[in-house]
């Protein structure tokens, strides 16, 4: 683990010096992770593929600002990914909505039930997550799909670890209720 971290830091340092091979390796390592990030968070009309590609373009520009001692590289990439998503929404005229502003990408009414079978695929999960508020969705994706800590997810969305746990509880409660309804039918 420590060696992996050291290897990664060395690779990042090489990339910061402009080494093309190091950039290629970082791209290969993080492309699937970033694609998954956008797959679950992109709004209808946004392309996860384009957003992922834009992220790596941004990474080339900004990698000089990354400091290994202050943050994990993946968390830094996620923060870049989040700002790209936000900018893309602004450019499309959509607001980047928080929980209090209401779900921005709701594609299914909360009363509409989901079956457990539907949630077993990535597409089904994406649709199920559309029932939640953006913050609940971010928390469930961060915690259960990306398997990050409450602290890391909280840092990304600007909430405390306790608030993240509460959002996780709410989100799972809503999803649990929906899937129950769906399976009962």
């Amino acid at each position: 683990m420590g060696t992996n971290r050291t290897d990664e830091i060395l690779m990042i340092q090489r990339a910061q010096q402009g080494d093309a091979l190091a950039f290629a390796r970082l791209h290969d390592r993080y492309y699937p992770v970033i694609y998954r990030y956008y797959y679950y968070r992109a709004h209808p009309g946004q392309s996860p593929v384009e957003l992922t590609s834009d992220l790596f373009i941004r990474m080339v520009d900004r990698i000089g600002f990354y400091k290994p001692e202050s943050d994990h590289f993946l968390d830094w990439l996620f923060s870049l990914a989040r700002s790209i998503l936000r900018e893309d929404l602004f450019s499309r005229g959509l607001r980047f909505s928080r929980a209090e502003e209401g779900p921005a990408m709701q594609t299914r009414q909360p009363t509409e039930p989901l079956s457990s079978k539907e949630v077993s695929t990535a597409e089904g999960l994406r649709q199920a997550l559309a029932l939640l508020t953006p913050e609940e969705r971010d928390v469930l994706i961060g915690k259960l799909v990306e398997r990050r800590s409450s602290r890391a997810v909280g840092r990304e969305i600007g909430r405390s670890a306790a608030a993240v746990r509460m959002l996780q509880y709410q989100g799972l409660h809503k999803l649990g209720a929906s899937t129950l309804k769906g399976s009962e039918e």
């Binding site: 949630v119 695929t121 799909v145």
Partner: peptide, 15 residues
């Protein structure tokens, strides 16, 4: 159980 179902969802593959 819902969380377990989410944890079991396979990762989406990029095209």
């Amino acid at each position: 159980e819902t969380a377990q179902a989410i944890l079991n969802v396979p990762n989406p593959e990029p095209p």
